[in-house]
Nucleic acid binder design. Sequence first.
DNA 1: TCGACCATGTAACTAGTTACATGATTCG
DNA 2: CGAATCATGTAACTAGTTACATGGTCGA
Lengths: 192, 192
Amino acid sequence: MSLKHILLGMLAEPRSGYDLKKEFDKSLRNFWHAELSQIYPQLQKLEDEGLLTSKQKISSEGPPRREYRRSAKGRRELLKWLRAGPQMGKDRMSYLAQVYFLPEFDDPEESVAFMQELRDEVAKRLATLEQIEKEWQACDPRYPDELPDDEFHAQLTLALGLKRLTATLDWCDESIARMQVRTTASKRMKRA
Amino acid sequence: MSLKHILLGMLAEPRSGYDLKKEFDKSLRNFWHAELSQIYPQLQKLEDEGLLTSKQKISSEGPPRREYRRSAKGRRELLKWLRAGPQMGKDRMSYLAQVYFLPEFDDPEESVAFMQELRDEVAKRLATLEQIEKEWQACDPRYPDELPDDEFHAQLTLALGLKRLTATLDWCDESIARMQVRTTASKRMKRA
DNA sequence: TCGACCATGTAACTAGTTACATGATTCG
DNA sequence: CGAATCATGTAACTAGTTACATGGTCGA
């Protein structure tokens, strides 16, 4: 039940469901994703459990918003989650399953084309993270190791994203090269 | 809907639900996981859709088993999935969310301890994959680039697992070092 | 006034997990 | 005879996605 704890983590300061969604898309996008239709009911549930409190705020600009903030009990629940140690689930990577079954094509060119598409997508995602890093670095001279604690930890998560995508991109390039060597090798066999 | 297509991919040869589960745990563990309680109903559904056929096999040794094999329609569905291009979902990494909220501890030692636990788990998983690679290499002189097509592609998925875990392990070590430098730096500040 | 964005939600569905139920065969 | 493994499933639950409904405010 990670969404629960992630919301508790984000709600040290009061935020609305809508704010939380934006924070997912901005700061947590690298490792978590949640829809509004999942966030709202979950907030309700957490309030029912007494892990957070809410206040309706009516402002002159914009529609009324409900602001949530975690309670002392909510913070204890968050710490309990952190103290339980790293939660490493088994990841599911559909695209690797696809790579595994690529021989079904029985066509090296189609297989290589798949890998090139994958490479492009990985490169795109890596470029996005690199852009984020570049801007952060340009805006804050404390980047990366003199940042305040919360931003330093956000930077750590960014650093892993960069490393993993870089490794994945390398792998794509190597794999394509290895596949091409096999293809030309088997062509030579046929000619002979 | 990836499980569907993964099952279709595996069922080029006839297999029982039980066999499929073992194959998940052995060959696909690096990128996919499925329980028997998910596999059996899914097989039933695919049979209803005409994507695979089944035969009850009664053998002298062991209880009766139902063997599934994909139909021509099933193979077309598999190819359709592969041709749709790489399916890269947004991964959810709970442990990175935990790293993000580590400052809640307000205790550098507890944070570092968390990272060390994470490091150990990553090292353990990496060791498992390295062991698999080592044995494979020892048993088959064709490893890795002269293997038959299906095994070559399985090796590609193993190679990505190795690269990603290696990158993650590096990141753990770097992160721990960076956290420790910050801790000693802030201790010096307090003494002054 | 129209489209973009702010803001909150519900309903129906799909996917995946955990717990349970059942029974056969094999090996020590 | 008992434990491990083979083998197939169901039921209840949790998590997440997609589609839809509603209405306010702001700027071009």
